[in-house]
Design a protein around this nucleic acid. Structure first.
Length: 596
RNA sequence: CGGGGCGUGGCGCAGCUUGGUAGCGCGGGUGCUUUGGGAGCACUAGGUCGCAGGUUCGAAUCCUGUCGCCCCGACCA
């Protein structure tokens, strides 16, 4: 390709719309153009990057025996209703774009394809002899994000590779799952990325085991906790740890203390010389569920710890046997709307009476009571007395007369000890999620009634896995991780071009001829070369080459008349002066293509 | 959804307080000079100032509404 025909338009100024470096560089380099919030055009340069990433993915998955397909993006609501996701994906903060056709039939634009593929496989595959199947597509996905941002990192339309596997039993699923994990490691390594694989929450997709692949970067949206020995890594949403030892409250006679206006843990500690770890903090949540009911939830946790809303939501879903659509702290406003005015916020105890809910208009009339291990383990503690300006002290759980569901809903954090080795501590870093693999189990096959005949001749549900890679996000993550003050430094394997040849002065015939000669020979050797033949000054060409991040640069310049050019490496910033044959030889070796 | 900010040629911005129908830099075009790190000079094209009302003799500027974009938050008694 010649730069003169590339519609390359680079910007000198940093665009106002972009906040993080990768987004700025992609716009400045002419890789993307914004059409609307969270909707971008992939310009020719970026499209080449996306195709290279796709090719790496396709080759790796093919080698693992995966099939490629292309599924419909427009999907009928019925299959989503069957799987039970239509409501949670379209209502409230749902992420699915939905519409009605002229018949009034409801349709959605696919944010993911579990329903579609499950339906199709169940109609096609009937016997265990045809299993396992692992099928994938690379396609545009649509998600109506609450807040699109950072360019391709969180957009409403994006390119994703999604794969789905079908198995006769759980063992087979597990072996494909680990094969896919292996494939992902190969893919991201080939893409030249620094990444980690961490345990993850499976979120709205559901299912059992799940892991995420994260490109480490300071601007990452996810917080990751990793053990100092590297053996354990998890998204904070999922992370577990051993809690720090607290300050023991020596058991004594249980009593009531007066704590005027001491509503926060901090105030309580300051006035009474308590340690936060001696207090049971009680928070009131409201969970909105699939059945349209709103459940008040009372959560107890050790005073110095924080609640992980994801874990809490999962525990509630499990207990209520349905999806929790939303979970949030109950506000004063909520309480007033319900016509309940006597909840003594700031002085709540785990045994807050259900009688307070009698007047509630739309809420369930009973608290679901959950206690985190950290609080339940306390032998003697302080907690609210359910009366304004009063706390209990030296209390223990035998004095609390309400049934409590004990579980882990605590947010693991930096410095906590690791489960696998108490001497190791958790460290924090930020990551960009570029891949996610799930063992779905039989969740979708059951809800969509997708069965096959097993070895015994009995109808059985498919065991399923699903595996995603954010192709367009990966491209931007690569930029976030590989740039300098001059611009992008693409990893060679996914660079839009491998080599750029610059003609320093277009009026110099020697330079032009030499550059043209090298260009043709590189193309012949299947090196992906770009020739900057624009009638521009050398400086502009250098700046552009650096900005768009081509890994190798050849300059036909001053010594062109003697057949000598410069070979410059974008990443190492090293330059060699070589004759044309040496350049071709070196690059051919570099890209492992045929010799000239 | 809540809070904050911004909408002025393709891009980045000034002008708005104190109304008098637009300006700077980059970019585009033409010409000359220059030619190894975003050149210089000259000429030139391009905007009814997001949109809709209102106030006024007169609105980019003041008022009301509306739309769009960006940022922060969705944090805990």
């Amino acid at each position: 390709m010649r730069v003169s025909r590339l519609m390359l338009i680079t910007l000198r100024d940093v665009p106002a719309e972009a906040d993080i470096i990768s987004h700025q560089l992609l716009i400045r380099g002419g890789f993307i153009k914004r059409l609307a919030g969270g909707i971008y055009a992939y310009m020719p340069l970026l499209w080449k990057v996306l195709k290279k990433i796709s090719l790496i993915v396709e080759e790796e998955l093919s080698s693992k025996g995966c099939l490629q397909t292309l599924l419909p993006q427009l999907q009928p609501s019925e299959i989503w209703e069957k799987s039970g996701r239509w409501k949670s994906y379209t209502e409230g903060e749902g992420i699915m774009f939905s519409l009605k056709d002229r018949q009034g039939k409801e349709l959605g634009l696919g944010p993911t394809h579990e329903e579609v593929i499950t339906q199709i496989i169940s109609q096609t595959i009937h016997s265990y002899k045809q299993l396992p199947i692992n099928i994938f597509q690379i396609q545009t996905k649509f998600r109506d994000e609450i807040r699109p941002r950072f360019g391709l990192m969180r957009s409403r339309e994006f390119i994703m590779k999604d794969a789905y596997s079908f198995h006769a039993n759980e063992n087979d699923l597990q072996s494909t799952y680990s094969e896919m994990r292996n494939a992902y490691q190969n893919i991201f390594t080939k893409c030249g990325l620094d990444f980690v694989c961490v345990d993850a929450d499976s979120g709205a997709i559901g299912g059992a085991a799940s892991q995420e692949f994260m490109v480490t970067a300071a601007s990452g949206e996810d917080l990751i906790l990793i053990s100092s020995d590297g053996k354990y890594g998890a998204n904070q949403e999922k992370a577990v740890s051993i809690i720090e030892e607290g300050e023991l409250l020596e058991p004594n006679k249980p009593s009531i203390i007066v704590t005027p206006n001491q509503k926060t843990i901090e105030e309580l500690c300051n006035y009474n010389n308590f340690h936060p770890s001696q207090i049971v903090k009680v928070l009131a949540y409201l969970a909105t569920c699939d059945d349209n009911k709103k459940y008040p939830v009372l959560v107890s946790i050790r005073g110095d710890q924080e609640i992980n809303d994801i874990k809490l939501s999962n525990e509630l879903s499990h207990k209520l046997k349905q999806t929790v659509l939303d979970i949030r702290i109950i506000s004063n406003e909520d309480v007033q709307k319900q016509g309940i005015n006597n909840i003594p916020f700031g002085f709540l105890g785990p045994d807050l009476s259900d009688n307070l809910l009698v007047e509630a208009k739309t809420w369930e009339k009973q608290f679901i009571r959950i206690v985190d291990n950290s609080a339940k383990d306390l032998k003697s503690f302080i907690c609210g007395n359910n009366i304004k300006d009063e706390h209990k002290i030296f209390y223990n759980w035998s004095l609390i007369n309400t049934e409590q569901l004990r579980c882990d809903i605590r947010k693991a954090k930096l410095g906590d000890r690791c489960i696998h080795d108490k001497t190791k501590k958790l460290e924090e870093c930020r990551g960009i999620e570029i891949g996610h693999i799930f063992q779905l189990g039989t969740k979708y096959s059951k809800s969509l009634n997708a069965t096959f005949t097993n070895e015994k001749g009995i109808e059985d549900y498919f065991w399923m896995g699903c595996y995603g890679i954010g192709i367009s996000r990966l491209a931007q993550a690569a930029v976030e991780q590989n740039h300098d003050d001059l611009g992008i430094i693409w990893p060679v394997s996914i660079a839009p071009f491998e080599v750029i040849i610059i003609i320093a002065n277009m009026k110099n015939t020697d330079q032009k001829c030499l550059a043209e000669d090298i260009y043709q020979k590189l193309l012949k050797n299947r090196v992906d070369a770009l020739l900057d033949d624009r009638d521009e000054r050398a400086g502009i060409k250098f700046k552009d080459a650096d900005l768009i991040g081509i890994p190798w640069r050849i300059v036909a310049g001053r010594e062109a008349s003697s057949g000598v050019v410069e070979l410059h490496n974008r990443k190492t910033k090293t330059t060699e002066t070589l004759d044309i044959n040496s350049v071709l030889k070196k690059l051919s070796e570099e890209f492992n293509t045929e010799k000239p």
